[in-house]
C-alpha cells in the first residue's frame, strides 16, 4: 500500500509517497499560480515513484493551503502532521520548533501525539519571510546568510520586533559600517529569541527538533541553541516533516479502518486544478 502526504505551504509545496519508507518526494514553489496546481507536483512525484494515482491508498493534505487539494482524502493541520513526521524521524523528541515561510510554531509532543502547541500571531517577524525581506535589502543570498553570520565576533542588538522597523535598523547599521556578519548574527538572534519566547510558553523539554525552511539557516539554529541551553536536532530535509507526517497519518487511518472493518472515508480524489469557488 502507498500513502501520500501533500504539504501545501505558503511558499513551498511538498509531496511524499511512502510505503514503509519514503519512495519519492518533490518540493516545488507554491507561487500564486501554483497554489491551484498542487496536482502537478503530485503528478511529478507519482512519475518519480513510477506509480499510477489509482495505486495510492490514501492522500492526506496539510499546510496553509490544505483545502486547495482536490485529490486529498482528508485534510489534517500542519501541527498534527509535523508532530507525527518529527516523531517518526526522532522518537525522542518532546518539542518541535517549526519556522516556515509565513509562520512559526512550537509543538509539544508525547507518545507521538500533540499535547500542546503555539503559533505566532499573524506577524512576519520571526519567520522565513522576515529573513527573505532582509536578504533582499542587503543583497545577500538567503542560503548563505546562516554561514556568513557564524563569522561574527560581536553581534549587534536588533531590538525592534517589527519587520519594517527591524529592516530599517539593519540597513542603518550597515550604513554605519557595521560588518554584515555582525548584523546578520544580530538578526538571527532576534528571530531566535522571538521564536524561543513563544515556544517557551509550552515549557521546552528535551529533545528539541527544529524544522521548516529556516532550520536550514545555521545561524538561527545556533542562536536557538543558545536560548534552550542544549543542542537541538535538525532533520536532513527540514522541509519534508509535514508531508511525511501527513502520509503516516493516512497510513494509520487506513490500517485502523482495515483492522476494525470500518469503511475508509475518502475524498473526491480529483487529480486536477483546484477551484476556489465551489
Amino acid at each position: 500500500m502507498y500513502f501520500v502526504g501533500v504539504d501545501l505551504g505558503s511558499t513551498m509545496t511538498k509531496v511524499v509517497i511512502m510505503d514503509e519508507a519514503v519512495l519519492a518526494c518533490v518540493i516545488g514553489p507554491t507561487g500564486a499560480e501554483h497554489r491551484r496546481l498542487a496536482y502537478k507536483v503530485m503528478e511529478e512525484t507519482l512519475r518519480q515513484a513510477n506509480l499510477p494515482f489509482d495505486e495510492i491508498s490514501y492522500v492526506v493534505a496539510t499546510g496553509y493551503g490544505r483545502i486547495n487539494v482536490p485529490f486529498a482524502d482528508k485534510q489534517i493541520t500542519e501541527i498534527t502532521c509535523h508532530a507525527k513526521g518529527v516523531s517518526s524521524l526522532f522518537p525522542t523528541v518532546r518539542t518541535a520548533i517549526d519556522i516556515g515561510g509565513q509562520d512559526a510554531k512550537g509543538i509539544k509532543i508525547a507518545n507521538g501525539r500533540v499535547v500542546g502547541f503555539v503559533m505566532n500571531d499573524k506577524c512576519a517577524a520571526g519567520t522565513g519571510r522576515f529573513l527573505e525581506v532582509i536578504a533582499n535589502d542587503l543583497g545577500v543570498r538567503l542560503e548563505e546568510m546562516g554561514e556568513l553570520s557564524l563569522n561574527s565576533k560581536s553581534r549587534v542588538g536588533i531590538s525592534s520586533t517589527c519587520t519594517v522597523f527591524a529592516a530599517q535598523e539593519v540597513v542603518s547599521r550597515i550604513a554605519e559600517g557595521t560588518p554584515i556578519e555582525d548584523v546578520l548574527a544580530g538578526l538571527h538572534e532576534a528571530i531566535a529569541s522571538r521564536v524561543y519566547r513563544m515556544v517557551e510558553r509550552l515549557k521546552i523539554e528535551r529533545d528539541v527538533v527544529v524544522t521548516g525552511g529556516v532550520a536550514k539557516n545555521i545561524g538561527v539554529v545556533k542562536a536557538l541553541e543558545e536560548h534552550v541551553g542544549f543542542p537541538v536536532l535538525v532533520t536532513e530535509e527540514p522541509l519534508l516533516t509535514g508531508a511525511i507526517g501527513a502520509a503516516l497519518l493516512g497510513k494509520e487511518l487506513t490500517l485502523n479502518a482495515l483492522e476494525s472493518g470500518r469503511p475508509i472515508e475518502r475524498g473526491a480524489r480529483r487529480l486536477e486544478e483546484a477551484t476556489f469557488f465551489k
Partner: peptide, 23 residues
C-alpha cells in the same frame, strides 16, 4: 487565543482551532 477582534483576525485562527480539535 489572544486576538485584536476583527473578522480577518478571527479567520486566521482556523488552523489553531482545527489542530486543537485534532489534539
Amino acid at each position: 487565543l489572544e486576538d485584536d477582534y476583527s473578522l480577518t483576525s478571527i479567520q486566521g485562527f482556523k488552523t489553531r482551532i482545527q489542530a486543537f480539535l485534532e489534539m
